[in-house]
Nucleic acid binder design. Sequence first.
DNA 1: CTGCTCAACATTGTCGACAATTTTTAGGTT
DNA 2: AACCTAAAAATTGTCGACAATGTTGAGCAG
Lengths: 243, 243
Amino acid sequence: MLSRLTTVQSETAINTTEAEVPKGTRGSQSLADRLFLTLRREIVEGHMAAGSKISEPELARRFDASRGSLREALMRLESLGLLERRVNVGARVVDLTERGLLELYDVREALEGMACRLAAQNRTEEDVVELRQMLARHEQQEELQAGTAYYQPEGDFDFHFRIVQASNNDLLIDTLCNRLYYRVRMYRYQLGMASPRAHRAFREHSHIIDAIESGDGELAEILMRRHIRASRSNIENKLSKQN
Amino acid sequence: MLSRLTTVQSETAINTTEAEVPKGTRGSQSLADRLFLTLRREIVEGHMAAGSKISEPELARRFDASRGSLREALMRLESLGLLERRVNVGARVVDLTERGLLELYDVREALEGMACRLAAQNRTEEDVVELRQMLARHEQQEELQAGTAYYQPEGDFDFHFRIVQASNNDLLIDTLCNRLYYRVRMYRYQLGMASPRAHRAFREHSHIIDAIESGDGELAEILMRRHIRASRSNIENKLSKQN
DNA sequence: CTGCTCAACATTGTCGACAATTTTTAGGTT
DNA sequence: AACCTAAAAATTGTCGACAATGTTGAGCAG
């Protein structure tokens, strides 16, 4: 409804090397779509350096596409907040700043808090089961890597992602999953912040699921907000020591 | 699909903004920019009916622009959530639904609540002064129209807008002011919901300013959330009676 | 050497034409 | 008449070329 690029993730190559898309199946995506997905990945993972300028002719040659199609992809990246464009000047990959990261946390606290409240109010059996399974997998991974103090950021990510889905609010889902989360991932990849909060985060996740299961929206929201704020404080400390 | 149809066809020219833009002096904007602004206005104010299909060739002719520039404007509108596009099919103006409206309120409650908290924490003398002046103007307007039970929606809008600006969080500001608020206005224009909550809203606004002035972020957030939720309940009642 | 002017270059914005796909229409069969 | 088929029309996606704007660098005056 709100966005069409929610779930499908075409990987790597631009050309549809993937086993012959049978004509007009619903998976049909335009060249600009594929360029968009590829470039988004490159920016998020840092293969295109943050703050670097983008040359339309060069990129177009590199992907063997016309400038028009490329420009369409660039505009979508701009609306995602991953690029900044100025008229008659060009596009740059967005800069990663300490302030931007902290701002991101505040917005997430507000939105994910609300998402968690709604998830508790509209919860289904399936939601709760999946969240518990997910938590179990994370515990397993954590045990395997016990002592390393290294926490799979993707695990934490999946957890938050799943809760947002359960909120059943399309606008909220779109705003978080199709907009903010790519910026979150960009910071995680490039500032490489593996959280040392592994055990603590795990317990917090567990309590959040409890609140959702019991349908206590108010508590679920409070716990989620506290969870995110703790993560923010953690990062803030790290950053202040770094300087 | 909520309907309250509007069928005006404005034929304003794009290029004749205001008297001779002297080269690249004032806010140089591209043709696509101007198309974007014009179309956004037409959609928000309902001159392009919600849910109606958009013909690229027709619009391009109407504004005497090429399809390329028009398409750029359409894509920006899509990322604003005012249009929906499907590959090889085309674009439609987004539908106004009861569900969409309520979703909007929940997201606003979360974001504006946070904005209000931050505004209280980062408040400046100027912020407080301007908010009080604004409130005074609204009171005056309200007295003039006393008894009519008609409340200037723009007044309420300005108030919320100003508080968001005071949050000093660019991501939050962008998300609310450049994204969500256009959808809010679209619903206001087209469902024509003049709030009968004039006096009550006024008092609530006043208390919110008090909390901001005293730097009590927690209270400011609570009051703003309650304010928005009350507005939501009000609408929800209206809608349920209508059906 | 510093700072300015202006011309040559590179990049972005805009356009019209062609290709790919969808939608509509016409026609025939049961 | 209803229904499937296929051609025709219309619409969207993609491209290369040209115009408008910004950037760079050489030459010159102070």
